[in-house]
Amino acid sequence: MRKSTAFFIFITANLAVMAALYIHSLTAVSKHPVFKKEIKEIAEKLRLTDLVLSTDARYTRHPSQADLFSAFQDFPGSIEHFPTGSVIPPPDFSYMRTEIRIYGN
């Protein structure tokens, strides 16, 4: 067999595997529990605000509810000591150097 033919067969086989994985993703997504009304009901009725991704620190268990400077909660300037802390990015500072207006009563 010519080498170019073997290469095209290899690429076609890869494309076939990718197509099969895409079909797998479509069927798996449609059957996934995230679409079940029961899990939505749990989130709504228990008034949950965060996913259980890490439970090693308060601010990684509930990143949306944490103090604004919770990554340095022990004392200012203390280094981050939970590994998952490196996954949580720093806050958005894009508002810096913009004018802030304060309206009194």
Partner: peptide, 29 residues
């Protein structure tokens, strides 16, 4: 990620957690 539950990256998320979910991720692409 979707058939072997992201076993190489999961430790980065788990960190020091003793309790963590077993990822059964929806394969959104």
């Amino acid at each position: 990620i979707f058939l072997l539950d992201g076993f190489l990256f999961a430790p980065a998320l788990k960190g020091w957690s003793v309790i963590y979910p077993h990822f059964n991720l929806a394969p959104f692409i």
